[in-house]
Design a binder for these strands. Sequence first.
DNA 1: AACTATACGGAGCCTCGTTCCGTTTCCGCA
DNA 2: TGCGGAAACGGAACGAGGCTCCGTATAGTT
Lengths: 193, 193
Amino acid sequence: MTDDKTRAPKRADAQRNERNLLDAAAKVFVRSGVHAPVREIAAEAGVGMGTIYRHFPTRADLIIAVYRHQVEACAQAGPTLLANSASPHAALAQWVAMFVEFVTTKHGLATALRSDHASFDALHAYFLDRLVPVCAQLLDAAARAKEIRADGDAYALLRGVGNLCIGAEDDPRYDPHVMIDLLLTGLRRRAGH
Amino acid sequence: MTDDKTRAPKRADAQRNERNLLDAAAKVFVRSGVHAPVREIAAEAGVGMGTIYRHFPTRADLIIAVYRHQVEACAQAGPTLLANSASPHAALAQWVAMFVEFVTTKHGLATALRSDHASFDALHAYFLDRLVPVCAQLLDAAARAKEIRADGDAYALLRGVGNLCIGAEDDPRYDPHVMIDLLLTGLRRRAGH
DNA sequence: AACTATACGGAGCCTCGTTCCGTTTCCGCA
DNA sequence: TGCGGAAACGGAACGAGGCTCCGTATAGTT
């Protein structure tokens, strides 16, 4: 699926700069959050701003590149958890917790995921494309095991959980885990039904 | 509680401008959302920008002033619903629905409520100060009626519900009501416990 | 070594928030 | 009625940040 050999091998300096940029961005995201000024990232990497925009036309592209590994890991954890957990619902809960951990750990990622600004469309699309199927699989398994209602919607659930993570880091009074537990509990089939 | 007579009656033109500004802001918020440029609001009202900042030092102040009526209505609806509903949980659900309706109806209000930007602190504070006690009262009544778990936290619930409303208007695939139902269901005491 | 496609850097333009201050307007008082 | 000064006004101007554009530098090729 990737394009290692497909077309136009990049020049050596371009490849080097791309790596530098990724490292620099990762560092800056930790320091100043995902919304750090473009200039700051360029400075950290020691390149001009033209370079940053050439490699990553939108901020979303850069964020995606920086966090790709973790998103992939999260996606792959789905089936693994399903195989190794006591029940599908437990797997779902663990997987959601993993997602929450990831999202809340990065300054402002949750907010960026929900930004309405057009330039973040690619970010939404990537996260959703990659994770909704995994979530759907977990939901499905839990539904088949009669542990949850059958009408769970993976897309909405992921959106909801992502939303619930917003503001987690700068508000000690608000703990998204509690709300997310409530959500997953609500999803559960009642004993009597 | 208001300061009609308390101090320094404003000049007639100042009062007039404040009204104009409120009307203009309301109109602009509908047209362009709560994040519309300050210049646009000033232009709509036919005043300079200095004027807008003099009356409403921060955007939050303006938003609060524009929506004060509705927030008050929402706050007052709490006790009324409690008195007139079949059960406290039903009242809670209705009240939350009312809040959701209000928040999702205004372009970007939900997002603004969760913006981490310092200038919106007043907005958070106002909404929370006004509505958390009402929510707590409903939660309390429901807990006393043994309809829900006793550990419900009004602050967290309101935050969570507000968060779940984010992105409702520009994503037809995401319906906050479903997620909020799940949340309230999760809050419910299980039959067996 | 010469040549050219690539890539680079950062000045510059744009939008938007916010401030500042010279000008205008209101209104109590003589 | 006319004046003086406090209260308001308006918008130019400044700073911060996003994004573009193009003259310059260089890797890779012949």
